[in-house]
Design a protein around this nucleic acid. Structure first.
Lengths: 211, 211, 211, 211
DNA sequence: TATGAATGAGCCTTCATTCAT
DNA sequence: AATGAATGAAGGCTCATTCAT
């Protein structure tokens, strides 16, 4: 007769996602240390011992947040940057997906990049994520370079990857503060800097998506 | 009767700098929350009430650190980027000064960018610093653009400033982990990305400082 | 239809013994407070609510352990000390049974004497057991004394009982740490002290079991 | 003008003793686990952080209690058993001091012997104390044995030491429950068992202090 | 019968902050 | 000016115990 399950007793998998949602929200607003497990539990609508039972220590909980959001971000970006496109097109699509993710998951972004960066032992987790992103970009550039018949200057390519990721993060912070900015626009702007260079900009040149 | 001043009784200004030195060191290693006022007092070689008497609350103390390091950084960069140079030269000198500062003041950099970024109410202080740095860059680009007789596309110029600052921060993190990297080299690498653009890089072009 | 009984559904009495076995083991290793009902349930191979359903509160569970082990010990000792033997022979046999029990039931001994002794409200249970043991000894001595035609000095006989039990407990602790010690040997050693006295030992005399 | 110091601010050494007094009292009544640091602080008339500041963890606090009471007990016994007395006289004086200490420091005794015995990691501390006491007795017996021109049967002498300590502990427990018992009487009773032996007691013989 | 889900309560521990000397 | 002494407040974590299925 009861078709709808009780709302109080939920299977573990569901509750875990609820907890992670709440944790990302609270960690994002308060920061790791200032956030209390009490508040997270309340935000998740359950009692504190459940958090410990399912997701462990506050530290482990934070890492679980990091992992979930990091995987989501990476997947979004990697999926957007297809395989058989021109390198600048790949880059632009990846950036658009990146800014789109940030705009849609403000809290996740904040937890990942604003909190984890400075707090050991989380910086390591983030560093891995950034390294993977930078490699994604570097790899793309290296392939493009090779296709152009050029000797790939490895270190410059690597630096470009890091610098691009850093620039994207800075703009992401800016996007978070300006919610009405379209991801397409932000991505295009960054392309202008990174792909064309400030020198070209000063010459009046700019990057445009091909038709 | 006492001709030689006691080593214990130092003038206030000196004591305050000692405290700030210690505070920056401890905050850098532990983070704001994990750092205890006890540890800072001990590192400064004085007792805890002195810290409160001189520099106020833990929060105020942290902000004092932020201010001091921020001013130092800004001054170093602004002084390096002279007024009557070509824009790319200005940019390059500013970047070199920036990376040089980071390398010479690891702890200050860490406090400023790794700790403050995520922790309210400090993020605002940092945001102001970043904004000033971005304006510095943007202003330089705008002047160059005007000098070239071009309509300054304001928003793109502003975006370029932010992106450049973000890229520089990312490389600064990288510099912190690689102490033997020369500031000149790092600055040149970033110039290659930002000034020439990845597109030019792929065409085999690169930026070089003029003789 | 089901001819073979499921292994999961065991008769209550069996389950209870399994639980008590597990509880004695865990309590012995961890102590009453440090032992968690979770761990006991897991050690018993069942779920926590079953423990509560069968044996009640953690406190009741511990008392159940105490009772079971205490009864076993008393029975072993009382059975060994027959009725129609000479008093020293009775004593020696009782001691041998005692040390044998301790060696064979380390965990039970630990729970009874090491854990219960200090923790209210269990000390009372243990005190009763000790009192019964002391009475057993005292009674034996009183009968022997009467048989020898002596006025039984009641208080000294009672004291002797307590002292003997205490000495036996101390040696039992020692036996627990030295698993290869034979109960016969330990019992004989204690007889030498208690029956002959240190004075006699110093005179070169010792107690021997009669052929 | 103020001759009497304020009662609120006391020097560290004084406060530490107050804390230890309170801790011994509370640990004795409740047991290590059931005792809360809150209760101890309250009993000491100060706030909880002071306990942590001066004496460390709850565990360290308990060990501090153990050490203090253990040293007191050992010193009392060792001082009482002079050096140039006959062995039985030494033994009797040591026992009298022991029972006197227990009667005068019930709580200390309880903490030492009833609590520490069963709870790791305290058992080790207690074991050392017991070993020293047993050695004290054994050494005394060995010297007496040698003086009597006898081959010292090492293992029996050692066993006698342990058994005596155990018997004394059992009677101490009994003394704690019977506050009006004189230490002299208890010591004499134990001498009757240990020195003369139950066999001699049954023959109507008993130990008497020489005039 | 048997258990996964859930919680109220409590305890250890730490820390920013202040007072009395 | 300088500090040892002292605390209110809060947070992480665990556990005995109970429902709802």
């Amino acid at each position: 007769m009861r078709a709808v399950p009780s709302f109080r007793r939920l299977p573990r998998a569901v509750r875990e996602q609820q907890m992670l949602d709440a944790a990302v929200r609270v960690f994002s607003r308060r920061g790791f240390h200032a956030a209390s497990v009490d508040e997270i539990a309340e935000a998740a609508g359950i009692s504190k011992p459940m958090v410990y039972a399912y997701l462990g220590t506050k530290e482990e909980l934070f890492i679980a947040c990091l992992d979930r959001e990091g995987v989501r971000l990476m997947e979004a970006v990697a999926a957007a940057a297809g395989e058989d496109l021109a390198p600048d097109e790949q880059l632009w699509r990846g950036l658009r997906a990146f800014f789109g993710f940030v705009a849609a998951h403000r809290d996740g972004w904040t937890v990942l990049y604003r909190q984890a960066r400075g707090q050991e032992p989380f910086a390591g987790v983030l560093a891995q994520l950034r390294a993977r992103m930078a490699e994604l970009v570097s790899g793309m550039l290296a392939r493009a370079s090779a296709a152009a018949g050029l000797e790939a200057r490895v270190d410059e390519v690597a630096t470009t990857g890091y610098a691009l990721v850093g620039a994207a993060e800075a703009l992401a912070d800016w996007v978070v503060e300006h919610p009405d900015e379209e991801p397409d626009v932000t991505a295009t702007r960054l392309m202008n800097v990174v792909w064309m260079g400030a020198g070209a900009l000063l010459r009046g040149e700019g990057w445009r998506q091909r038709a």
